[in-house]
Design a binder for these strands. Structure first.
Length: 193
DNA sequence: CAAATGATGACCT
DNA sequence: GGTCATCATTTGG
């Protein structure tokens, strides 16, 4: 274990990779974070996915092969995904929450007045705390700026419905580490009973 | 070229 | 719990 722990096999479907990513550490420049909340998105079979209607300029990275970061902007925020599966097949895992484990000062500077446990809680906040922008779209997760490492210790995993998606939100494709203070509060999507 | 959409977040009641 | 701010991308004329 330690520094050499390998990351999960990203060539498999996002739905399989998502729970394995919990507890893994993503380093972006000088800041490192331990993932505690993710959501899986598939391609054509997933009405909530950006790739549902097929390839476009925005979601090209989802089709570009495993091990790359898919970053998109919306509502004035950035969200980042880890692209999965082989080239030509869309699948990704949205990073929704993480605990900062290194570079805390840099993360705090980007989000003044925010509690440490909330620095990377939520997709938009996570990107801001880690300094991820659209300039990182398509970057390798094993390159000079980004580095994805495996988990250092076993983690508990819980599953449930996705958050804030307009369709198919009820699918239990959201995974998180129970008890972590950096998991965003459960937010029921519109239409669920 | 113009309008609508969206995997959010912060603030108000 | 609900509303509004705010940005890029997508789609229609």
């Amino acid at each position: 274990m330690g520094a050499g722990t390998p990351a999960p096999d990203l060539s498999r479907p996002g739905l399989e990779v998502a729970p394995l990513l919990l507890g893994c550490v993503l380093r972006v420049g000088d800041v490192a974070a331990r993932l505690v909340e993710v959501e899986a998105y598939e391609g054509e079979r997933d009405p909530a996915s950006h790739a549902w209607k097929g390839p476009s300029r925005r979601n090209a990275v989802m089709f570009g092969g495993p091990g790359h970061l898919y970053v998109y902007a919306m509502h004035g925020h950035h969200c980042c995904n880890i692209a999965c599966r082989e080239e030509g097949v869309a699948s990704a895992v949205l990073l929704r929450g993480a605990e900062i484990v290194d570079g805390l000062d840099a993360a705090r500077a980007r989000r003044p007045g925010v509690a440490d446990t909330a620095l990377a809680r939520g997709p938009g906040n996570l990107c801001r705390a880690l300094g991820i922008t659209s300039a990182d779209n398509g970057a390798s997760l094993f390159g000079p700026r980004l580095l994805l490492s495996g988990r250092a210790a076993p983690v508990e995993v819980a599953a449930g419905p996705r958050v804030n998606v307009s369709r198919a939100g009820e699918w239990p494709w959201r995974f998180w580490v129970p008890g972590s203070p950096s998991v965003s509060a459960y937010k029921r999507h519109a239409g669920s009973a």
